[in-house]
Computed example of a mutant assay.
Amino acid sequence: MRQDKEKYIIIIAGPTAVGKTALSFALATKYNAEIFSADSRQVYKEMSIGTAKPTESELAQVKHHFINNRSIQDGYSVGDYHNEITEALATYFDTHDVAILSGGTGMYIHAVRAGLNNYPTVSEEIVTDLEETLRIGGIEMLQNELEESDPEYYDKVDIHNPARLVRALSVIHETGETFTSFQQKEKCGLPYTMIPILLSRDREELYKRIDDRVHNMMKNGLLAEARELYND
């Protein structure tokens, strides 16, 4: 991957209602930049009120990426996000010098800054077999196998979380290597200059802003949106 330190990603992070959207718009206007969302819920078309998406007017003012580009019926992971934003930024920086990355999903921001572990694709058959082992033999069978196959990961994983056990064992079955070995491989963030900005406010002020936001969400139909999502 090319190294291009004269291209800049300004990262706007911070808690809910701290003012990330307003600052992102100000910086996008100042630098003639576009905004790349790092919010794991704003990608979904059906979730607008509860995720505090920019309004239609705001979206028309500044071009946004990774908002309203998936349905809740679709699977979407941080790995998908990392692959897609890597490609999107490479194209974007052919004609721009500054991008704004804004959002509240720390794992998405970390994926851009530091990269992800490169885990292999696992066949559905292996996952199905492990889930069947879990169903028939109970979680203890998976715990025992992981302890024998990868004691280092066994010592640090939540061994009472069956999804994590299945995930680790599926990689081991697929590759013959320990799950730990993939975690130890070098990761690499995207090859641009990162400028992180972490926003904060006085706690009482922030709590009031959150209360006001939730009140407005309820007035704008949050409950109806939640019911519709539940029915889907």
Rank of each mutant, 00 (worst) to 15 (best):
T105A: 00
A88K: 13
M107R: 10
H64K: 07
E58F: 00
T91M: 14
N83C: 10
N83E: 15
P120K: 05
E58C: 03
Y119C: 00
E124G: 04
H96Q: 14
K45L: 12
L116Y: 06
Y44G: 02
V98S: 00
T51A: 15
G106P: 05
E87V: 13
S57P: 00
Y44D: 06
E87Y: 02
T105R: 01
V122G: 07
D94V: 12
G115L: 05
D80K: 08
E84H: 08
I85W: 09
T95S: 14
K63I: 14
K63N: 14
A88Y: 05
P54C: 09
I109C: 08
D74C: 02
Q73H: 10
H82M: 10
Y76Q: 04
N117D: 09
G50V: 02
H110L: 08
N118D: 13
E125A: 15
V112L: 07
K53H: 07
F66K: 04
Y44F: 11
G79A: 04
Y119Q: 01
S57R: 14
R113K: 15
R113Q: 15
H64A: 12
T95E: 10
M47R: 11
S57C: 05
H65V: 01
V127N: 00
E84S: 10
M47L: 14
Y119E: 01
D94S: 13
Y108T: 11
A111T: 11
D97F: 09
D80H: 12
I100L: 03
L89A: 11
I85F: 10
I126W: 01
E87P: 06
A99T: 04
Q42Y: 06
H64G: 08
V78A: 15
H82C: 11
G106K: 10
M47H: 08
G115I: 09
K53W: 06
E46L: 06
N118C: 00
E46V: 12
G75M: 07
Y81W: 04
H82V: 06
I49S: 06
K53F: 08
V43K: 05
A52G: 04
A114N: 15
S57A: 14
T86W: 12
A99N: 11
Y76G: 03
R70A: 01
T91R: 15
A99W: 15
H82G: 03
L101P: 00
S77E: 03
Y119V: 03
P120Q: 09
D94L: 14
T55S: 15
G104L: 03
N68E: 03
Y44V: 02
Y92A: 11
V127W: 01
G75W: 06
R70Y: 04
I100N: 02
Y92H: 07
K53M: 07
Y119A: 00
D97V: 08
K63M: 13
D94F: 10
E125V: 15
V43P: 05
T55G: 07
V98G: 00
I72P: 00
G115F: 09
G79E: 06
Y108E: 03
S77D: 03
L59C: 11
G79M: 00
Y44L: 03
V78L: 05
Y76M: 03
N117Q: 11
K45T: 13
H64R: 12
Q73C: 09
I109N: 10
H82K: 13
H96T: 13
Q42D: 02
T95R: 11
I109K: 09
Q73N: 13
E56A: 10
P120M: 08
S123P: 06
I126V: 11
A111C: 10
T86Y: 12
I126K: 05
T55M: 03
E125T: 15
Y81I: 00
E87I: 12
L116I: 02
Y76D: 05
I49W: 06
